[in-house]
């Protein structure tokens, strides 16, 4: 079966002021697959994934050339609402960022913002999202507690649940385990593998083993360019480009 393209970047250039951070990057993100972006710090991989839900336009003096599609929709098109894109393309950051509210309110917030008032529906959605994010068992008896009381790993799963509640389609993970211990990291990785059944996932990670473990496809970025893109098992066993090989074997220097 051919992979279905969920998102597509087409000849993307991106500038911070006069500095070009991305150079002519084209890439397909497949539905129900995990795509990992790897590369040294400053290579443009985070900038790149932030384009998929228009997060970069919140940064002043930036400019984008090229097109990004979500299904057939060009997400930067004139009539497209950025908030709607960010609902459909959720994001989980390096540092968990729960709202300073209760666990329940963290999840229900997005629904209420979207105009949903049906209490029973909201409760059901909260439970469903927390279950999908594999944290329900740990929080079900204290949904009224502040989310800030949770551990880092739990907060990160709560943030994932928050994306799921608003019926997101794509989840962007930007170094989701960078501040987590190995056990929490394993839980997040397992969760990513579980979530790809229903969502399309893009993950930026510095942890090469993590990219190898969780992703189906991997793109290697260097100095704003995508050097190589391919199936993860090929990238990690027989990369085609010597620059990819140097990076993943740690010979860079």
């Amino acid at each position: 079966m051919d992979n279905q393209v969920k998102m597509r970047a087409q000849n993307v250039d991106f500038f911070y002021g006069k500095t070009q951070a991305l150079k002519n990057v084209s890439l397909d993100i497949y539905a129900n697959k995990v795509t990992a972006m790897i590369g040294p710090s400053g290579c443009g991989k985070s900038t790149f994934i932030r384009l998929f839900n228009r997060m970069n336009e919140l940064v002043p003096h930036t400019a984008l050339r090229g097109k990004i599609f979500l299904d057939d929709l060009e997400i930067n098109g004139p009539l497209v609402d950025a908030v709607d894109i960010r609902r459909r393309v959720g994001m989980v950051f390096q540092k968990p960022n729960p709202f300073p509210k209760s666990i329940f309110d963290n999840i229900s917030y997005g629904l209420k913002v979207n105009g949903i008032k049906d209490k029973a529906f909201i409760e059901q959605k909260v439970e469903e999202s927390l279950k999908k994010a594999a944290i329900w068992g740990e929080v079900k008896d204290r949904l009224g507690d502040s989310a800030l009381k949770l551990s880092g790993g739990q907060q990160q799963r709560l943030c994932i649940a928050r994306c799921l509640a608003v019926e997101t389609e794509v989840i962007l993970f930007d170094e989701p385990c960078a501040s987590l211990d190995p056990i929490s990291t394993t839980k997040i990785e397992e969760l990513i593998l579980e979530l790809k059944k229903d969502y399309s996932i893009i993950i930026v990670t510095h942890n090469m083993q993590q990219a190898a473990r969780v992703s189906d496809y991997t793109g290697f970025f260097l100095l704003g360019e995508m050097v190589e893109f391919g199936k993860t098992q090929d990238i990690f066993t027989k990369p085609q480009d010597p620059k990819t090989e140097a990076y993943i074997t740690g010979r860079f220097g």
Partner: peptide
């Protein structure tokens, strides 16, 4: 070492 690519091979 969790070797990759040419090292793994």
């Amino acid at each position: 070492q969790q070797p990759m690519a040419v090292d793994l091979r």
